[in-house]
Computed example of a mutant assay.
Amino acid sequence: MKIAKYIFLLVLLFVITSSILIITKDGSYTVVKSKLIKVPKNTVFNYLAENKNWDVINPWKNTLEKGSLIKQKAFNKDSIAQIILLNTDNEIKTTLKLADSLNYTKISWITKGKMSFKEKFLGIINRGQKNNLADNFEIGLSNLNKILTTEINTFNIKIDGFVNRDTIFYIQKPATCKLEQLPNNIKIILPKLQKLLFVTKRKTNGQPFIIYHSKDTVANTITFSVAIPTKEKVQISAGSDIYSGQNNPFQAVKATLTGNYNHKKEAVAKIFAYMNENKLEQSPKYKEVDIILKNTTTDKSASKWVTEILIPVRPIKPIVKKKPKVIVDSTAVEEEPIME
């Protein structure tokens, strides 16, 4: 009995001491998990800023504890504030911070919080919300790294060769932006054009396309129009930021890019190589056109985007070399043959 009594008192003393330590322990915590991703910072930021991409990187989607993105806000192209709801009653505030690191982007997932008595106790044995968040942040960043380095960097380019482009009527909305912002602008502008056609009961005549008007290499910006082809010319009311247009037939070299739009420069390089081989040069009379078969509005997976790139061309005119002019000396006297 005395031994049992001593054991009971020791256990009671341990519980009381542990409780005092837990109560007096600071319950504040900070969780920071970081990863280096070999993808440009702008690409990472634009991907994370899209709410619909949350399901791809959500570390809770295959666990009993469900995590829902309630709200997020982007700041200065280098941080994103989030509110995540765990299950149905636990909101946590997190921040994603991005920084350039040589050829990589360093991304950190950060949160701060306060532990309850239970959480403090579980923390002693490496359990509880703090440790769960650390594990899940690690999983989420690994998911992000996988999707960006495989999905976004996976692409294919096919040179389709010389093609003819027929007369096309279309409606268009012009815009100017950085090249990397083009997919997001397409996503914003395209529904506006589709709505106008729906309201006016006009029929489309093919896939949407982009017309390139000019490029500012110093500012790295492009001026372009997102357009939808129509069966007939559409009359647009004055004052609208949407315009009607028409292009005459032209000839072009076409390439099909399957994958993220960021790889267009590789496709254009192959087109110009094909043009050189076939003695073709870019025509200044017509604009470069990209036909959008699949993009961010139709497929979440960037590796499934399909774009047809058309660069207007004309045959290179052969250089005709002029024959040297032969000058005849009219003062010369022809000698008569001597008769013997």
Score class of each variant (00 low, 15 high):
Lys231His: 01
Leu12Val: 15
Val163Ser: 08
Leu69His: 04
Ile157Glu: 07
Phe45Trp: 05
His263Tyr: 15
Thr176Glu: 10
Asn164Ile: 00
Gln82Met: 02
Val31Leu: 01
Glu138Gln: 14
Asn295Ala: 10
Gln207Ala: 13
Val11Gln: 02
Ser330Val: 11
Ser330Asp: 09
Lys2His: 11
Ile327Thr: 12
His263Lys: 15
Asn103Tyr: 05
Ser19Cys: 06
Gly140Arg: 03
Ile37Phe: 07
Ser28Gln: 08
Thr331Pro: 00
Leu182Phe: 10
Thr63Gly: 05
Asn260Pro: 00
Leu10Met: 10
Ile110Pro: 09
Met1Phe: 05
Ser34Gly: 14
Asn164Arg: 10
Lys215Trp: 08
Glu277Lys: 15
Thr88Met: 08
Lys287Leu: 12
Val199Cys: 08
Ser19Gln: 03
Ile316Glu: 11
Ile159Ser: 09
Cys177Leu: 05
Lys61Ala: 01
Leu10Phe: 11
Glu138Leu: 12
Thr88Gln: 15
Glu288Phe: 07
Thr221Asn: 07
Thr17Leu: 11
Met1Gly: 12
Met339Ser: 02
Gln82Trp: 06
Asp26Ser: 05
Thr88Pro: 02
Ile57Tyr: 07
Thr167Leu: 13
Val56His: 02
Tyr47Asn: 01
Lys279Ala: 14
Ile147Met: 05
Ile70Thr: 03
Thr297Tyr: 03
Asp160Ser: 15
Pro229Phe: 01
Asp241Cys: 09
Lys158Phe: 14
Lys158Ile: 15
Leu190Gln: 11
Asn260Thr: 11
Val44Phe: 06
Thr167Asn: 09
Arg314His: 05
Lys41Val: 06
Gly128Met: 10
Lys270Tyr: 04
Leu21Asp: 07
Ile7Asp: 06
Lys112Phe: 00
Lys322His: 10
Asn103Pro: 02
Lys120Glu: 05
Thr258Ile: 10
Tyr286Arg: 00
Ile20Gly: 13
Gly123Lys: 04
Ala255Pro: 07
Asn185Arg: 09
Asn126Asp: 13
Lys112Asp: 04
Pro59His: 03
Lys38Glu: 15
Asn248Gln: 10
Ile107Val: 15
Asn153Cys: 07
Trp109Lys: 09
Asn184Asp: 15
Asp55Thr: 13
Thr150Val: 08
Asn278Gln: 12
Leu148Tyr: 06
Lys203Pro: 02
Lys93Met: 05
Leu144Ala: 06
Tyr243Ser: 09
Thr331Ser: 08
Lys215Phe: 14
Lys317Val: 12
Asn90Leu: 13
Lys323Phe: 06
Lys321Gln: 15
Asn51Leu: 04
Ile309His: 02
Leu64Tyr: 09
Ser237Glu: 13
Pro249Arg: 11
Val326His: 03
Glu151Arg: 10
Phe117Thr: 00
Glu334Arg: 13
His263Phe: 14
Thr230Tyr: 01
Thr167Cys: 03
Ala227Lys: 00
Ala49Thr: 04
Lys114Ala: 00
Lys264Gly: 12
Pro337Cys: 06
Ile309Cys: 05
Ile188Gln: 07
Ile7Val: 15
Met275Thr: 01
Pro337Phe: 10
Ile152Glu: 04
Phe169Asp: 11
Ser225Leu: 04
Glu180Ala: 05
Ile291Asn: 02
Asp216Met: 04
Lys73Phe: 01
Phe272Leu: 08
Pro324Val: 12
Thr331Met: 05
Trp54Ser: 04
Asp26Tyr: 00
Lys270Arg: 09
Ile210Tyr: 01
Lys112Met: 03
Val32Ser: 04
Thr176Leu: 03
Ile188Thr: 15
Asn76Thr: 08
